[in-house]
Amino acid sequence: MPGPDRYARAVLPGWQKLSPSIKDSVFALALTVLAFVPTVSTIGPQLGDLPKRPVDALALVLVVAQAAPLAIRRRWPGGCLAITGIAFALHQSFGYPNTIAGIGFYLALFAVGAHLVRYRRVAAAIATAGYTGLAITLHLLGSPSQLQVFGVFYLGLVVMWMTGTAMRRWRAEEAENRRLGVEVATAGERARIARDLHDVVTHHVTAMVVQADAAQFLLDGAPEQVGKGLNAISDTGRQALTELRHLLGVLEATGDSARVDRSPTLGRISDLVEQARLSGQPVELHRRGDQRVHAIDIELAAYRVVQEALTNAMKHAAGHLTRVEIDDHDDRIEIEVTTDGISAGAPAVESGGRGLRGLRERVRMLDGELVAAARPEGGFRVHALIPSRRQA
């Protein structure tokens, strides 16, 4: 036979999907019904300890008036408190038997603290004045309760109000934290896209410039090779447009344009190497280890490291041998790009947070590290170590 926990798991998801107004209405109805159940109907707050009088029609109306207004406790918390407060005061003043519906007065105070937006101090002053009037009325009607009893009861009401206020502040802080989280995530995504745009544009435009220069040289010396050079420029331009369209698709985040399978991966590093070779840059590619499938952010970071290193090689060490070594381990991807004879004074870190600096940030976000420095024997070396995790 199914246990209570199974029923709870089946009911709770549906309850959470209901609107707040429906939840409040159901709660108010449940409390009203409990007020007429003999075993629990007399469990409730009492103030004044006046002699009890029999239940009549007015008593039934006051019972309903203390519970039913909870249906509007979030939409109109002030009105809810006014109705339940007056009903509670009359119920206590006439000396009717205790009722569980009196809990509605406490819950209305909590709702005012949690949901009332305007005139909060005015509402607090009116509620305090109303309670003072009730205490005086009960005393004049012959209540045996001492002053400290009324004081303690009032402190209980204040605690309910302040608890609602604390809940209001907590929700406001949660909303602010979510807003800040969205802003941080948005800023991070914008920075990532900016780095990708820099990498794509810089690499491909550099390659096209180098290829155009080579084509101009061939035009003067070997015209039959011009077609090959122009084809290389055309292929490079198409590759640049493809990657730019992908990045624009990510910005739009619509349809198939934002699919991850369009992002550059380790398997396309050979295309980068071939593109550099077509630009006249001698490049050697060495891969060790089995070609594994990694998370897309890891593969994209590795791709960008090689792309930026080759771009710098074509810009600052054109015509010098460049070696690309990739070790694909179970727990990490290790990349080393070395270039012979990089031009003197070439910047190791580009300005404006782009280039190698942006790559360092990208790799650091993946708990990896990137080192870019001149080699003692001449040339330049870029070394990246990226911890790996398998793609789910």
Rank of each mutant, 00 (worst) to 15 (best):
G3T: 13
P4Q: 05
R9W: 00
P13L: 13
P13Q: 07
K17A: 14
P20G: 07
S21N: 10
V26K: 07
V26F: 03
L29Y: 04
L34R: 02
I43H: 06
A65R: 01
Q66E: 11
A68W: 00
R73V: 06
G79H: 04
L81C: 04
Y96H: 09
Y96N: 13
F105E: 03
V117A: 08
V122M: 06
I126T: 06
A129D: 03
T137F: 02
H139A: 12
L141D: 02
Q146A: 15
Q148A: 11
T165E: 13
R178H: 02
D196W: 06
V200F: 01
T202D: 09
T202S: 09
A215I: 08
L218F: 05
L219M: 11
E224T: 14
L248E: 11
V250S: 05
E252P: 06
E252T: 11
A258F: 02
P264F: 00
P264D: 05
G267P: 04
S270F: 00
D271Q: 11
E284S: 15
D290N: 11
V293G: 02
E299W: 02
E299Q: 06
L300R: 04
L300A: 06
L300C: 04
A302Y: 01
R304V: 11
V305C: 13
Q307V: 09
N312C: 13
K315Y: 03
H320K: 12
R323D: 15
D328S: 09
E334Q: 15
I335S: 04
G341D: 15
S343V: 12
A344P: 05
P347H: 08
A348F: 11
A348E: 14
L356P: 12
L359N: 03
A372E: 09
G378S: 07
G378C: 08
